[in-house]
Design a protein around this nucleic acid. Sequence first.
DNA 1: CAAAGATAATGACATATATCAATATATCTA
DNA 2: TAGATATATTGATATATGTCATTATCTTTG
Lengths: 232, 232
Amino acid sequence: MNQHTQYSKGCAACQDRTDIFGGLCQSELNQIDDKRIEVHFKAGELIFKQGTPNMHFLCLTQGKVKTYIEGYNNKNLILGVVKPVEYILGPGIYADQMHHFSAMAIEDSVACLVDLVTFKSLIRTNADFAEDFLKKVSLQSINNYELFISLTQKQMPGRIADVLLYLKDKVYETNPFHTTLSRQDLADMSGMSKESAIRILREFKDENIIQVNGNDFEILNADHLVKISQTG
Amino acid sequence: MNQHTQYSKGCAACQDRTDIFGGLCQSELNQIDDKRIEVHFKAGELIFKQGTPNMHFLCLTQGKVKTYIEGYNNKNLILGVVKPVEYILGPGIYADQMHHFSAMAIEDSVACLVDLVTFKSLIRTNADFAEDFLKKVSLQSINNYELFISLTQKQMPGRIADVLLYLKDKVYETNPFHTTLSRQDLADMSGMSKESAIRILREFKDENIIQVNGNDFEILNADHLVKISQTG
DNA sequence: CAAAGATAATGACATATATCAATATATCTA
DNA sequence: TAGATATATTGATATATGTCATTATCTTTG
C-alpha cells in the first residue's frame, strides 16, 4: 500500500462511514481531530501488545486487525477481526490502563490514535456518546458470551462452522471471500490445533459444504453449516 | 432464613458496605430508593432467565447468586458467583434489553430491583457514576478474558485449580470454606463433566493439595494450586 | 424410621482431540 | 532460478476427556 494514498480528511469524513461518531457535534469531532495521530501498519505488524500501557483510543479506518489474547505455551486465542470503521476498545481503559489483549494488522491498515484524556472527557460531557459507547461495549460482551459457548460446549466441527460463518457474515461480508488469516489463525479462533482445523476444513470440503483453494473460501451450503454449528 | 430479619434500611445503608454507590449524592440515592423493590429468593430459585426481557438493574444485598449461560444440550457455563453488595449487570441493558445469561440463588438471598429508566437516567446525569459503572463493566470483562484462557487453553487440573482459587479468594474469602455449589456446578464452572470434576478433586485430595469433606473445602497448598493453574 | 429421591463417587470403556513425524506446497530471498 | 524458509497437509499414535453403568452416600419426606 502506498503511504501517500492515505485517508486523511479527518473524523468528520469518517462519520459518514460509521455510527460511532453519530453522537458528536462538530466541535467535539474537532477535539478528537486535533489530538488524532494517523498511523499506517503493514500486514503482520503489531499494533499494541497485551500487558503494555493503554494510552490511546484506537479507530481503524482501513485494513483488518485481529485481536487476540496471549495465553500459555505461546498459544493465542483470537477474539475477533476488526474492520473499518470501527474502534478497538479494551477493558483496560476504565480499569488498570493496560492492554488485556494484543492487536495485529492482518492486512495493511490505517488507524487513528486519540489520547484517552480527550476520549474520556467526551464520555463525561456527552451523555449520548457515553450511551453509544456503552452500547458498543455491551454488544462486544454479547459476542464474547456466544464465543464462550462455541469454544467450551461445541466440538471441533461446530467451532469451525462458527468461524466460517463469522468470516462470511461479519468480517468479509461476501461469499466467496479471500482471507489473509493463516490456518494457525483459524485454529486460534476456534481453540484447537492447526492440524485439527485443517482436518475439519477438509471434511467440510469433501462433504461439499465449502470450497477451499488456499485462502479463498466459498460457503456452498450455509444452512448445513448453521446446522453443524447448532448441533455442536 | 427468616423473612423478617431482612436488611431494609435503604440504599444509604448499603452504601457503607460497597463502592458502587460512592458516586451518588443523597438525592440520587433517594431516587433509587423510591423505585426499589426488595425481593427474597430461596436457595435454588431462579432470579432471572436468559432470553427474557431485562427490565431491572439488580443489586444483591444478601446471599450468593450464580450467573450462567445456558448452552446446548442442557449444559450450562457458570460465569461467576456474585456476593453482597454487588450488582448483577448484563450487557443487554444497553443492547437489546434482554438477559444474555441466567441468575440463580445458591443461598437464600435478598436482591433489590431498580427499574432501568432510573438507572439509565443516573448514568446520563452523573458522570462519576457513569465512570464507576464503566469501570465495573470493564473489570467484569477482564475477568471474562481470564476465564476464556482458563477454559480454552488449560487442561482439567488447571481449570479446577482456577475454580478452587476463585472460590477461596473471590467468593468466600476464607479458608477453609463451605460452599453450596454442587459438583455439577463446579463442573459447569470449569467446562467439564461432573465425573471429571470429581476425579480431579480426588487427585488433589490424594496429593494433599486440598482437603475435601462433602461441601467443605480447605486449600492446604495454595502455591501448588497456583502452579497447576499456570502450567495448564 | 424407612422409603424414595437426589447427589456423589468410582470403574470400564469409547472417542474427540493433541502431538509427533513426514511430506508437500507456497513464499521469500540471494 | 535455486535454495531456503515458512506454511499447509496428511497419517500414525498417544492422551485427555466424555459417556455409561454401578454403587455409595446424603437428603428429603411421609
